[in-house]
């Protein structure tokens, strides 16, 4: 039985019909991915101060000034900073397949995308289990909507994710390893909205039909 949800991977790959050949490749790629990936999950919870237009994360220099966060985080009093990565070996393998088999590259890449999302979902569940008295918001990452990518290095530094998970931010605030998710997730006593909206997203013309931020 597969660990990774193939249906999600097929959605990333824009697969209409799954041929036996493709399924065999997916099985082979999943086995390899699970063998070489070194998943790491880091999360830290912070008390926050909610101002009119922003959240100040206490004990850090981080301020979340974002309409999206204000809309999606309903008066939360705690925010988790999260970093999930599959490790650099996954990037290297994708690079390898880009030279030997583009089909495998696509399959491996899609499976890795789903796997890192699954790890992030797992982490969210763990956090919710530790905070059963609170409602949890959606996970929201730097670069989504109006939440600036500039938060990326701050978040990585605050979580000490370079030392603890090998995650590095480059000069354009992109993370390496590529299969890495960073996010903020709030916890509050009030029920939290779960809707997503593309109207403020910088990628609103991306055309993606599987973006989790487009599920509305």
């Amino acid at each position: 039985m597969s660990v990774i949800d193939y249906s999600q991977a097929y959605a990333y790959m824009k697969v209409g019909n799954v041929t036996p050949q493709l399924e065999n490749i997916m099985v082979e790629m999943e086995r390899e991915l699970l063998y070489i990936a070194t998943p790491r999950k880091i999360a830290k919870l912070y008390e926050v101060e909610h101002l009119d237009d922003s959240y100040i994360i206490k004990g850090t220099d981080i301020v979340l000034k974002s309409n999206d966060i204000n809309r999606l985080f309903n008066n939360v009093d705690v925010i988790a900073m999260e970093c999930i990565t599959l490790g650099i070996a996954v990037d290297k393998r994708i690079d390898y397949y880009s030279r030997t088999s583009v089909m495998r590259m696509i399959a491996f890449d899609a499976l890795a995308n789903v796997y890192v999302e699954q790890m992030a979902n797992e982490l969210s569940k763990e956090l919710q289990a530790d905070n059963t008295d609170k409602y949890m918001t959606v996970r929201y990452s730097p670069g989504y909507g109006d939440l600036p990518m500039l938060l990326q290095p701050q978040l990585i530094s605050e979580l000490n994710a370079t030392k603890r998970a090998g995650v590095i931010v480059n000069t354009n605030n992109l993370m390496i390893p590529l299969k890495t998710i960073t996010a903020f997730q709030g916890f509050g006593v009030k029920p939290q909205p779960i809707d997503y909206d593309c109207s403020n997203c910088l990628l609103k013309e991306c055309g993606s039909d599987i973006c989790p931020r487009r599920k509305s």
Partner: peptide, 14 residues
């Protein structure tokens, strides 16, 4: 036309 999907396109290309 949408009758063939990306993996088949790439598989054939490979």
């Amino acid at each position: 036309k949408g009758s063939i999907f990306l993996p088949q396109l790439i598989s054939s290309s490979d």
